[in-house]
Amino acid sequence: MGDIDNGIENLRALIDQAHHELGEVCAKGPHNRFRMSVPARPDHDSDLVISAGLDAGERALDALAAAEARTRELEATVQRVGAERDEARSLIGDLYDESECWYDHHGYCQAHGWTDTSLCPHRRAAIVLGLRGSDV
């Protein structure tokens, strides 16, 4: 967060400096205030100070627009993933067999034909769906 905060503070400083310089030019008139140096002095010359502030504002707006676009993308992803989760839970519920698991001497679930010693998929479905008898 530090880099972002420093970047924002730098942008704010440039914009504030541009506002101040533009205010001085307007208050004193361009013939009495507008400053230009050879060689150029970016922190002193009116045109460069104002230009830097405007550029900083543009960069800030570009960053904000990119962040807003990314936020919209992430919100759409959250919606899609939520819908997929709901569909998957519904599908698991449709495929779930409520009959109790019973295991043979090898640890295979004979009720559902599960020939692995890992937890029977129907028991796992009960756990995912939070159904009765899902305690392992």
Rank of each mutant, 00 (worst) to 15 (best):
T117E: 11
D5F: 02
I92K: 02
R33F: 01
T77R: 15
V78G: 01
G29C: 12
A13V: 00
I4E: 07
A65T: 12
V128N: 03
E21Q: 07
I4Y: 06
R89P: 00
Y103V: 04
V49K: 01
S37T: 15
V25Y: 03
A69W: 02
D94W: 11
N10H: 04
G57E: 05
P39H: 09
N32Q: 14
D43E: 13
A83P: 00
D104N: 15
I92E: 00
L74I: 15
G2Y: 05
G82K: 13
L129D: 03
L61T: 11
L74P: 03
T71K: 15
A40W: 00
R85H: 08
G107Q: 08
L64Y: 07
S90F: 09
L119T: 09
T71D: 09
F34G: 04
R59D: 01
H19I: 04
S99N: 14
L22F: 10
R72H: 09
D47C: 09
L91Y: 11
A18R: 03
D43S: 12
D62A: 14
D97A: 08
G130P: 05
L48K: 13
D47I: 13
N10W: 00
H20M: 00
L48F: 04
A88M: 12
L129C: 08
G2A: 14
L11I: 08
P39M: 11
P30N: 05
L54I: 15
C120R: 01
R72K: 14
E24P: 00
V49Q: 02
T115M: 11
I127Q: 15
A27S: 05
A27L: 13
Q110E: 12
A125Q: 07
R70V: 02
V81S: 10
S134N: 09
G113P: 12
T77K: 15
D104L: 07
Y96C: 07
D47E: 13
G113Q: 12
G130I: 03
L119N: 00
D104Q: 05
A111Q: 11
D5N: 06
D16Q: 04
Y96H: 15
S118F: 04
S134L: 00
D55G: 07
Y103H: 12
R12C: 03
G113D: 12
R89W: 03
H19W: 03
L119V: 08
I127P: 00
H31T: 14
D5G: 02
R59C: 01
G133F: 02
A52Q: 02
C26I: 15
D55A: 15
S51E: 10
D3M: 09
I8E: 00
T71Y: 09
A56T: 02
E68Y: 07
T115A: 12
E24W: 03
A69E: 11
G23M: 01
G93Q: 14
